[in-house]
Design a protein around this nucleic acid. Sequence first.
DNA 1: AGCCGATTCCTCCTTCCGGCGGATGTGCCG
DNA 2: CGGCACATCCGCCGGAAGGAGGAATCGGCT
Lengths: 241, 241
Amino acid sequence: MTRASLIARLSRFAAMPGRKPSSGVPLETEASATRSAPIRVLIADDHPLVRRGLAAIINMEEDAAVVGEAGDGEEAVMLWRRLRPDVTLMDLRMPKLDGVQAIKRIRAEDPAAGIIVVTTFDHDEDIYAGLRAGAKAYVLKDVQPEELFGCIRAVHAGQAYLQPKVAAKLAQRVQEEPLTEREEQILQLLAEGRSNRAIGQALFITESTVKSHMKSLFIKLDVTSRAEAIALAARRGLVKF
Amino acid sequence: MTRASLIARLSRFAAMPGRKPSSGVPLETEASATRSAPIRVLIADDHPLVRRGLAAIINMEEDAAVVGEAGDGEEAVMLWRRLRPDVTLMDLRMPKLDGVQAIKRIRAEDPAAGIIVVTTFDHDEDIYAGLRAGAKAYVLKDVQPEELFGCIRAVHAGQAYLQPKVAAKLAQRVQEEPLTEREEQILQLLAEGRSNRAIGQALFITESTVKSHMKSLFIKLDVTSRAEAIALAARRGLVKF
DNA sequence: AGCCGATTCCTCCTTCCGGCGGATGTGCCG
DNA sequence: CGGCACATCCGCCGGAAGGAGGAATCGGCT
């Protein structure tokens, strides 16, 4: 067995309360008398590489310990229930259940849950959605590791945390006109390349109505053509391709 | 940080049955018989978090050692020159100089350089561009760490390596009609939401010519409207937003 | 020389889009 | 109740987009 896979197996033991490693050696939490209990961290990210990497560098910190890893949203919620970590690092794009939904479910069970969104996406819409869902912090994967550690400690202490870049995007987002549900649906179908008629058929409304919504959509997005609207929606992360 | 202390920290919360990692006893029992110098690895990724994480888990392997980290394409080329690593892990989206360009520069100096693209992007266009630039392997960040290690060893041994998923995308790409340079320019401007007239003005050609190119573009992409073309281009990674 | 692909330009015609002006019903909230 | 936002629909019209078809130039390749 390689050293890495050995450690991975062992950290899975650590992720299971009530179970002890077969050797019977006590967990080190009890051994460090002078230090207080480390911050228990759960990681949710669909990329094993990123997950392991994050876990590795977080575990290098004296006051933090990764207690579990989830590869999708459902697993994240389940593991959170079982482990009740102090802090959860959550990616947004994940299979089965996306990060925003996972955050909502966790927050429904514990409104004080400390969740940090860690993602590559800096679209203002993602930031807005993540924080609205109840995340305490939002950091991009371009943060310095030290800053992430600081963020973890801040969230553990009950504080919020935003990178300046993220805060700026959020400020931008809040001063944009929000789209109605119908407008979002139409924008999504528009971004799939459908014509007004096709959109109407998909939503069981007339082409006239589609045009009507399209009009307000253009005004809110401040564009003059559907192509422009698609380009803007792509930049802002308003639609999924 | 030494490898031994790293392991010690990682195992703070989990005992290692049958082994004593921090005792100073060498762990390389399986590999020690035929052990040679470790594979020297250079990492290029614009996210410090990912870089450090990758470095941490690669350094856990007995036969590999990270000798350098680059945060952008220029740095990657410079560090490669200085270090001459056995294997380079290269992200595609990086500031200053993107991964494809960095690979080309390195390959220009040493056509035998072992470069592995490690990225989240599974667009067929990215895969094609990366391999055309001279990468020996292309893996997505959703690989299992063990598979990445296998890939590193394969490339070090002079072999190529492709994930099945990546190979399938590549096969798809080669049977698509390639776009001409002009068509790519027009597609890019189209994806920015410009009208035929605006595209013509940008490229100093008449609107008629734009329409003419647009026609062949639609045929090659197998679409019937500009909106569809934008949607397809976004999915395939043909354009940058 | 002949062929082919890329690029440039054109006409004719139809369809669709986008801007203009409305209208109606529904539900919510002070 | 009277506004307000939202969603649904309508006609009109000019202009943009898209389909069909042709044609000239240039460079490369056989």
